[in-house]
């Protein structure tokens, strides 16, 4: 499964990058996120409750960041397991580009899904993932630009 999109966030690039590294912002933005802890500068652990069609489960997972190209570009890889509901593993490439006072965020993600989740059929998973990603960036964008207005 592959996801690709770009969004415009009303905040300068360094703020967007900082927010992407802020567990509190991420926790608020990730749909269903119950826990998110920074283990080190490049490692995060998360617990996320998800519902895909009839499958509802809490996924425990680990995300590793590769920030070699930051703040223009960085890579994420991760895997998560939802017990009987199945598992997922994948990665994403995120690019940030300045556009005046705003930032264009582009992402390309790919994920392999297994277990009950996968059995539900690709069409349901792809559309759910697309929706979740959309929700995340909507929340994220709102959080980052709102924070900016307050300050």
């Amino acid at each position: 499964m592959e996801l690709k999109d770009e969004i415009r966030i009303e905040a300068p690039k360094h703020e967007v990058y900082a927010a992407l590294n802020d567990p509190e912002v991420l926790k608020a933005a990730i749909p269903g996120c119950q826990e998110l802890n920074k283990v080190s500068d490049t490692e995060l652990e998360a617990k996320v409750a998800l519902k895909v069609g009839p499958v509802k489960a809490t996924f425990g997972g680990k995300v590793t960041l590769d920030t070699a190209g930051a703040p223009d570009r960085f890579l994420l890889t991760g895997e998560g397991s939802g017990g009987v509901a199945g598992f997922a593993k994948g990665g994403a490439e995120v690019e940030l580009e300045e556009d005046g006072n705003a930032t264009i965020l582009r992402y390309a993600a790919r994920a392999d899904v297994g277990g009950k989740l996968a059995m539900l059929g690709g069409r349901l998973i792809a559309s759910t993932a697309q929706k979740l990603a959309g929700q995340f960036f909507e929340n994220f964008s709102a959080k980052v630009s709102a924070g900016r207005r307050i300050s």
Partner: peptide, 14 residues
């Protein structure tokens, strides 16, 4: 089945 051995038609939706 997909390459990972996932069953792709395990419900009456598919």
């Amino acid at each position: 089945y997909d390459d990972m051995g996932n069953v792709k038609n395990a419900t009456l939706m598919d």
